[in-house]
Design a protein around this nucleic acid. Structure first.
Lengths: 335, 335
DNA sequence: CTTAGCACTCTACTCTTGACAATGCTAAAA
DNA sequence: TTTTAGCATTGTCAAGAGTAGAGTGCTAAG
C-alpha cells in the first residue's frame, strides 16, 4: 500500500464516520489535490486489497471490516495518550461516592459522549470470602439475616421468626454458621453448607429448619449473580444504520434478553475491539464492541463495554475507553 | 346507542385488537347476519357519537379512545373475576423467595404474557425508621457502615479507616449515631443529623470528620432513591403500531430517560387505565398505561404498571393486573 | 504515473396506472 | 320506520416508467 493509498483509506474512514454516506473520488480529490481519476485508481486497488467496499456497482466506497481494523491498528493505536480532554470524566473519578456509583456514572457519561450503548459488567463477589454472618431482629416475629464479605459486599434476607423457631435458637444457628463459614469463599459456601448439614453437629439443629437454610443459600447465591448496568440503548435509535427496523429489533432484543454476556468480551487483556463479524454473536455482526477488563481486589474480573455501529469515532472512543479503564483500575488500587 | 350498535362497537374493538387492521362493514355483516349497509348506517352513527374513527375517507373503522373507554367501562369492568386461568402466576406467589424477587418475577411474566412493557416502581424506604446502625470492620484499614430499617431494608457504605480516624473512635461515633437516630424516619434523618452536628456533643467528635458524616448521609439517601424495574421494552418492537421508527424512538427514549415516573400513575386507588391522550406525557399519547398501586407496610405506596399500544387485549390484561395487584398486596399483609 | 473524457451503471425520486376495499347516499323493499 | 341493494366516489397500495444525478471503470493522451 502506497503512502497515498493509506491516506485515502484514513480519509474514507474519517469522512464516513462523519457522514454515514459512501465516499466518492471527487470528495477526496479536493482534499488531496490530485485528480479524481487518480483517486479512483487507488481506490480500485484498495478495494482489491479488501480495505474498502462498494455498496453497489456505481457507488462511493465504504470501509470494510478489514479497513476499520487497519485504521485502528495503524492510526488509532499509535495515537498519543496525551488525550486528556476528558474533563467531564475527571470530575467523576474524584467524587467521594461509592465505587459502584462512580463506575455507573462513568458508564452513563461514556454512553452520552459517544452516542453508543455502554455496559458495565460485574464484578460479582464470587471469589470474596465470608467475613461475618449476622442476625438483626427487627420486630417480635421478624429478623434480618446479613451476610458480609471481606470486600464489603452485603446481602440480606428477611425471615420470619415463628414460635417454632425462636430468636434464641436462631442466634445459636448463626453462631454455628459463623464458625463454619467465615473465610469460606462464596463459591464454596453452598457445597460446604450441604456437607456440614449432613455430617456435623449442626445437622440436628437444622434438620427441620430447611427454610432457614434455604434463606441463607439464597442470600449467598445473590453474591454470585452477575450484575450489569446497561445504558444508552436508545442512543442507537438515532444512528442511521439502525433506520432499518429489523436491525433495530435484533439489536434491542439481544440486549433485553440477557445476552449481554455473549456480547461483552470478558476475557481480553487491555482493550479489545471486535468489529462486526469478529463478534461471536450474529446479532452484533453490524456492530463494533469495545471491551476493557479490569481486576478487582478479590481476583474477580469486571468489564466495561461500548457497543455501537461499526462506523464509530474510533479516534475518540478508543482513547476514552483506555482512559476510563485506567481510572477504574486505579479506583481499586487505591485501597 | 342501540343494542346492535353496542355489539358492533364491541366487535370492532375485539377484531381490531386481534388484527390491527381497520374493520369494514362486510366483516361485521357476516358475524351479525345483517347486511353490510345496515352495519354502515350504525357505524356512521357510532362515528358521530365519537366511539369509532376512520383512518381515511374510505377505510374501515378503528376504535377511538372514547370507544376503548366505553368498551372497558361497560364490558371489561363487569367481567367476572372468576378468571383464575393464571396458573403460571400462582406458582410465583407461592415461592419462598424474597418479596422483591417475587414482584420482579411477576413483572417479568406479566410482560411476557401480554407482550407489553411492564414496570414495577418502588417501594422506597422513605417512611421506614432507622432500626440499627452498625459498623463492621473488614480489614485493618477498612470498615463497613450498615444502616438497617425497621422493615428490613439494608444499605451499606464502605469507608476507609485511616490512622487519623481509628476504629475505636469510629465505634464511638456509631454509638452516638445510634442513640440519636434510632426510630427516626429516613425522611428526617438528614435534617436531624445536620441539626445535631450543629448543636450537640457530637459536634466535637464529628467536626473534622466530614467524610464520615457524608458517607452516612449517602447511605441514608440511598433508601430514598426510587427503585424501579422495567422489562419487556423489546416486546413493543413487534407491535405493528411501532413499525414507525419515529414512534419507536419516542417511546424508547422516554423509557431510557428516567421518565418512568411521569408514565406511571402513582396516585390511583385500585386500577387506573389511561388511554392515549389521557396520559400526562405526550410520548405516551399512542399508548395505554395500566397502573395498579399497593400499600407497603411502612405506609409507602408502590405501583405495578403495564405499557402497551392502545390496541391492547383489555379483556385479558385488566383482570390479570387485578389478579397480580391482589396477590402482591397479600404478600405484604401476610407479615 | 497522472489526468481528461466518456460511456455505463445503479439509486432515488416522481408520476401514472390499475386493482381493490370501503364508504356514503339514494331509492326500493320489508 | 328499519333494512337492504346498487352504485358512484374516495382513498390505499403496489407495480411500472421515466428522469436526474452521482459515481465508476476504462482508454488514450499528457
Amino acid at each position: 500500500m502506497t503512502l497515498r493509498q493509506e491516506k485515502i483509506l484514513k480519509l474514507i474512514v474519517d469522512e464516513y464516520v462523519k457522514s454515514a454516506e459512501p465516499i466518492g473520488s471527487k470528495t477526496l480529490a479536493e482534499i488531496l489535490e490530485v485528480s479524481s481519476a487518480t483517486i479512483r485508481n487507488d481506490m480500485s486497488e484498495l478495494e482489491d486489497l479488501g480495505f474498502i467496499e462498494k455498496t453497489h456497482t456505481s457507488s462511493g466506497r465504504v470501509p470494510s471490516e478489514k479497513g476499520y481494523r487497519y485504521y485502528i491498528e495503524t492510526i488509532v493505536k499509535n495515537l498519543d495518550e496525551e488525550t486528556n480532554g476528558f474533563i467531564e470524566f475527571e470530575e467523576i473519578f474524584d467524587k467521594d461516592i461509592a465505587r459502584d456509583d462512580i463506575i455507573k456514572e462513568a458508564v452513563n457519561l461514556l454512553s452520552e459522549a459517544t452516542n453508543c450503548t455502554a455496559i458495565s459488567l460485574g464484578p460479582n463477589a464470587y471469589n470474596s470470602k465470608v467475613k461475618k454472618i449476622q442476625l438483626v431482629p427487627i420486630s417480635s416475629h421478624q429478623a434480618l439475616i446479613l451476610v458480609i464479605t471481606n470486600f464489603g459486599y452485603v446481602e440480606s434476607r428477611q425471615i420470619n421468626v415463628s414460635e417454632i423457631i425462636d430468636l434464641e435458637e436462631l442466634t445459636k444457628v448463626i453462631d454455628l454458621l459463623n464458625e463454619m463459614l467465615v473465610d469460606t469463599p462464596i463459591s464454596k459456601v453452598s457445597e460446604k453448607l450441604h456437607y456440614e448439614i449432613q455430617h456435623s453437629q449442626i445437622k440436628e439443629l437444622l434438620k427441620y429448619r430447611e427454610t432457614i437454610v434455604d434463606s441463607f443459600i439464597e442470600a449467598f447465591q445473590r453474591f454470585a449473580r452477575s450484575r450489569y448496568y446497561l445504558t444508552g440503548s436508545s442512543n442507537m435509535l438515532y444512528q442511521p444504520e439502525f433506520n432499518d427496523i429489523q436491525k433495530l429489533r435484533e439489536f434491542l432484543s439481544t440486549i433485553d434478553n440477557n445476552e449481554i454476556f455473549k456480547i461483552v468480551d470478558q476475557d481480553s487483556e487491555g482493550i479489545s475491539v471486535k468489529i462486526g463479524s469478529e463478534n461471536q454473536i450474529t446479532a452484533m455482526s453490524d456492530c463494533t464492541v469495545i471491551s476493557s477488563s479490569y481486576n478487582t481486589l478479590d481476583g474477580e474480573k469486571a468489564t466495561i463495554s461500548l457497543v455501537g455501529p461499526k462506523r464509530m469515532d474510533y479516534r475518540k472512543v478508543i482513547p476514552l475507553m483506555k482512559y476510563i479503564a485506567k481510572h477504574i483500575a486505579k479506583l481499586y488500587e487505591e485501597e
